[in-house]
Design a protein around this nucleic acid. Structure first.
Lengths: 165, 165
DNA sequence: TAAGTCGTTTGTGTAAGGCAATCCATTTAT
DNA sequence: ATAAATGGATTGCCTTACACAAACGACTTA
């Protein structure tokens, strides 16, 4: 008798198999990245690096050599800017451009020993900064965050590469 | 008799209680944020928004009203630029500046109903973009990523706020 | 009443980065 | 073999996002 106004939810939500998460991570991602970058730049300055360099070096270490086009695509940056970025890194002998034997128009960009070392120094110097930025995450959480970021980053990039090579 | 060269690892690694993770997330974070931003901007353009606006709106919704100083601190952006950003949002009536009753020098910035709605539309429009950017993450992973980002972002910001208020 | 504070406006400077044109070396197609 | 296409480099121009400084009005606090 008391049932006139109340609509019965009888198993109704079960119909939608997966509740699409409403959360958009973009804004958070942007903001956290901003904090990390601002904080990082001050640690990187003594090493003569900026974040953009670090990103490039990281990508290069991870991929173990890459053509400039590939870099342009994974960094999502215009080719001309890649040239400038690489020029800066090459001027400090952190990277090397070698002509590809297969196609001598191409440059294969690789980390030098010095570059690898510098990158290591940078990461070491960044420990402090990241401890502040990720202060509220414990080590396990930081690790899963790292894993997720890595997986997301590699996914996008490799789809384009898969088509190409 | 075959034991001369091999050093026994007998329980040795147990001595260091926690292996500090060598992974630096900064570069990955930066790059993923860049991808997300580039991808997002094209979806946001029809709504007359850019990512900076979205971040501000998101922060405002989350905090439910904030003083401009607080915004300046959580967004880590110069006060004068906050003014400009808010001017743009106010021009579209997405936010409102009210003078604080406690201290009439201060502006309390709040989302309007229209602002809340627009933010919702934006997030809805961003579903496609984020599906691409986070394509390799399943729903559960995206959710934990979101949670981690949220936790990290809130941590940093609230430390400063805790001191202030 | 004086000094400090919040927000606003204006103006200046810098760095990141896109886009287009031009050039060279090389490869591929005809 | 000659023409067309491609990878990269260089130059120049333009936009945007910021930071920073100075000056002002409104307000609060000492």
């Amino acid at each position: 008798m008391t049932s006139s106004l109340v609509i019965q939810p009888v198993m109704e939500p079960v119909i939608q198999p997966v509740m699409e998460p409403v959360h958009r991570s973009g804004a958070l991602l942007d903001q956290l990245a901003r904090r990390a970058r601002l904080r990082a730049e001050s640690e990187l300055a003594p090493l003569g690096l900026r974040q953009r360099h670090l990103v490039a070096l990281t990508v290069l270490r991870c991929s173990g050599g890459s053509t400039q086009q590939a870099l342009s695509s994974t960094l999502m940056m215009d080719g001309t800017n890649i040239v400038g970025l690489l020029n800066e890194l090459e001027a400090e002998q952190l990277i090397e451009r070698r002509r590809s034997p297969q196609d001598r128009r191409r440059h294969v960009v690789e980390l030098t020993a010095k570059g690898l070392e510098r990158l290591g120094q940078a990461e070491c110097a960044l420990a402090v900064a990241e401890n502040e930025v990720f202060g509220t995450l414990d080590d396990a959480q930081r690790e899963t965050l790292y894993t997720l970021l890595l997986q997301a980053v590699n996914g996008e990039g490799s789809r384009a590469e898969a088509l190409r090579e």
